[in-house]
C-alpha cells in the first residue's frame, strides 16, 4: 500500500471508534424509529409491521399536533429570549471580572451537579401555596392568603430558564473571552462612549456566541417534557409530552415514532439554518 493511501486511511482509523459509536447509538436507533413510524398499532396494543402512511398523515394533517408544535416553539422562543436577556449581563460580568473568574465559572456549573428533575421540582417548594415565597409574603404582610403561582405556562418557562440559562451564559462567555479588549479601548480612544463601544464593537463580535447559546436553549427547550409535566397545568403540554403519551400511555409506538421524527426534522432544520449562516464551530466552542 502506498504512503499516500496509508495517510488517507489514518484519519478514518482514528475516527472509527467515534463513528462506530454515533452509528450504533444514533443512526441505528433513528433508523428503527423511522421504520416504526410506518407501522400501525392494533386495537390490542400490538404493532402491525408494514409500510403504512397513516401515522404520518395524522401527524402532518391533524391541527392538534400542529397547534401543540407551534405552542412548543413559542415557549422555546420565549425561554431563549429570557435566557439571552438574563445570560448576557452575567456572561459579560464573568468575562470582564478579574481574579475570581474561576469561582464564578464554578458557580455557573454548580446546578449541573444536581439532577434536572430535582432542580425542576425545587420550584414547588419555592412557589407552592405553602412554599417559601408565599410564606414570606404572608409573614411580611404583603398578602393575606397564599397566591397560586404554580402549574401554569409562566412556571413552565421559569423552569426552562432555570434549566437552560447556564448553557446560554457559557456560550456567550466563550465568545466574549475571544474578543480582544484592545478593540474596545481603541473605540474609546476614538471618542466612543463605553456604551457605544459595547454596542458597536463588543456586541456584534459576541453575536456568534449569543446565537450558539440561543440555538442550544431553543433546541433543548423545545424537546423537553419533564418541565411541563412537573410545573405545568392541564393545558401546558409541549410536543415532547405528546411523544411521551403516544409511546408510554397509549402504547402507540408507531405514532410516537412519527411524532418524534417530526420534532427532530423541525429542530434539525433550525440547526441546519444556523450552520448555514453561522457554522457549527462556535457551538462546539461553547460546548467545549
Amino acid at each position: 500500500m502506498s504512503v499516500e493511501a496509508r495517510e488517507a486511511r489514518q484519519p478514518w482509523i482514528l475516527l472509527s471508534p467515534a463513528l462506530g459509536a454515533v452509528t450504533l447509538l444514533l443512526f441505528v436507533p433513528l433508523l428503527f424509529i423511522l421504520v416504526y413510524s410506518f407501522w400501525l398499532r392494533t386495537a390490542t396494543g400490538a404493532d402491525l409491521a408494514g409500510f403504512y402512511l397513516d401515522n404520518w398523515q395524522e401527524a402532518l394533517s391533524d391541527p392538534f399536533y400542529r397547534d401543540i408544535l407551534l405552542g412548543t416553539l413559542r415557549i422555546a422562543a420565549i425561554t431563549t429570549l429570557v435566557c439571552a436577556l438574563m445570560g448576557y449581563p452575567a456572561a459579560y460580568f464573568i468575562a470582564r471580572s478579574r481574579g475570581n473568574k474561576a469561582i464564578l465559572l464554578l458557580l455557573l456549573m454548580l446546578p449541573f451537579w444536581i439532577s434536572y428533575i430535582i432542580r425542576t421540582m425545587s420550584w414547588i417548594n419555592i412557589l407552592g401555596v405553602s412554599g417559601g415565597l408565599n410564606t414570606f409574603l404572608i409573614a411580611v404582610g404583603l398578602v393575606d392568603e397564599p397566591i397560586q403561582m404554580l402549574y401554569n405556562q409562566t412556571t413552565v418557562i421559569l423552569g426552562l430558564v432555570h434549566f437552560l440559562l447556564p448553557f446560554m451564559v457559557l456560550n456567550i462567555y466563550v465568545s466574549l473571552e475571544g474578543i480582544d479588549t484592545n478593540l474596545e479601548d481603541a473605540a474609546n480612544s476614538l471618542g466612543a462612549t463605553r456604551w457605544q463601544s459595547f454596542l458597536q464593537v463588543t456586541l456584534p463580535l459576541s453575536l456568534p456566541g449569543l446565537a450558539a447559546g440561543g440555538l442550544l436553549c431553543f433546541v433543548l427547550g423545545a424537546g423537553t417534557y419533564i418541565t411541563p409535566l412537573v410545573l405545568g397545568g392541564p393545558r401546558d403540554a409541549m410536543f415532547a409530552n405528546l411523544v411521551f403519551e403516544a409511546i408510554i400511555t397509549q402504547l402507540n409506538w408507531p405514532l410516537g415514532s412519527a411524532l418524534s421524527l417530526m420534532l427532530l426534522v423541525v429542530l434539525g432544520a433550525l440547526v441546519l439554518i444556523y450552520n448555514r449562516y453561522l457554522g457549527m464551530a462556535q457551538l462546539m466552542k461553547g460546548l467545549g
Binding site: G45, F64, I68, P234, R235, A237, T249, Q250, N252
Partner: peptide, 13 residues
C-alpha cells in the same frame, strides 16, 4: 382503550 386514551390525550390539552 385505543380510542379513549387517545381522545383523553387531546381533551387533557
Amino acid at each position: 382503550e385505543a380510542e379513549w386514551s387517545k381522545m383523553f390525550g387531546r381533551v387533557q390539552k
